[in-house]
Computed example of a mutant assay.
Amino acid sequence: MSTTQSERLRELLEPLVGSQGLDLEEIEVDSVGRKRVLRVVVDSDTGADLDQIADVSRALSAKLDETDAMGAGEYTLEVGTPGAERELTEHRHYVRGTGRLVRFQLADGAELVARITGVDDTGLDTEVPGVKGRRPTAGRLSFEEIAKARVQVEFNRKDKKDENDMTEDEEA
């Protein structure tokens, strides 16, 4: 997709997405045979439920139908949210990732896997999980130190809250 078309689509669709209380995260146009697929990724600080996705999809579809932004050919519109292992590229992504385990590729070439515990304007507070009985280690990363960051999927995470909030029936 040309930069011009990408910019035009973003200018056209971003206000509609914003009016639905969501952020426009990504726009991608792929060719699939003779058809094209327009993928729009949306999100918010509280996530997006299926009703919001459906509402924004209808609004975007109507707007695209009344303009020539996608040209005359057929296309399919797909609206969704970022995947589980999303890349963090904007300040708001890091804020939304608070509490999540993230794999950082640092500007100096090093790699770090840590949980985001806080975010401010200059960087992140992190906690490297303890292994084999060791305590977690707190740290700090400035945004300039981060080359790439991607959320990691955790299947076996036990929240401290869950361990401490068990009822007597659950403990027995």
Results as ranks from 00 to 15, higher is better:
Thr81Asp: 05
Thr81Tyr: 11
Asp45Tyr: 05
Arg100Lys: 09
Ile27Gly: 13
Gly99His: 01
Glu66Gln: 11
Val42Arg: 13
Asp51Met: 00
Gly97Tyr: 06
Val42Cys: 13
Val32Met: 10
Gly33Cys: 14
Pro82Asn: 12
Ser44Ala: 12
Gly73Tyr: 08
Glu78Ser: 12
Ala54Gln: 09
Asp49Cys: 03
Gly71Ala: 06
Glu85Pro: 01
Thr98Arg: 15
Leu38Asp: 05
Asp55Pro: 00
Leu64Met: 02
His93Glu: 10
Glu74Gln: 10
Leu77Thr: 08
Met70Gln: 12
Val56Met: 07
Glu90Arg: 14
Leu60Gly: 00
Ala72Asn: 06
Ala59Val: 03
Gly97Trp: 09
Glu87Trp: 06
Arg96Thr: 07
Ser31Asn: 09
Val40Gly: 08
Ile27Ser: 13
Gly99Ser: 06
Gly97Thr: 09
Tyr75Asp: 13
Thr67Leu: 04
Tyr94Ala: 04
Arg34Lys: 14
Asp49Val: 04
Leu88His: 05
Asp68Ser: 13
Gly73His: 13
Val29Ala: 05
Ser61Val: 00
Arg58Trp: 03
Gly80Met: 03
Glu78Trp: 06
Lys63Ser: 09
Val56Pro: 00
Asp30Trp: 02
Asp55Arg: 09
Arg100Leu: 08
His93Leu: 03
Arg34Leu: 15
Ala59Ser: 08
Leu88Glu: 05
Val40Arg: 02
Glu90Trp: 04
Glu85Tyr: 00
Gly83Ile: 03
Leu60Thr: 00
Val42Asn: 09
Asp43Tyr: 12
Ala84Leu: 15
Arg86Phe: 13
Asp55Gln: 07
Val95Phe: 08
Val40Tyr: 01
Leu38Val: 11
Glu28Ser: 15
Val32Gln: 14
Ile27His: 11
Arg39Lys: 15
Thr67Ser: 13
Thr76Arg: 13
Asp65Ala: 09
Thr76Glu: 05
Asp43Glu: 11
Asp49Gly: 11
Ala72Val: 08
Val37Ile: 15
Thr67Cys: 06
Ala48Ser: 04
Asp65Met: 03
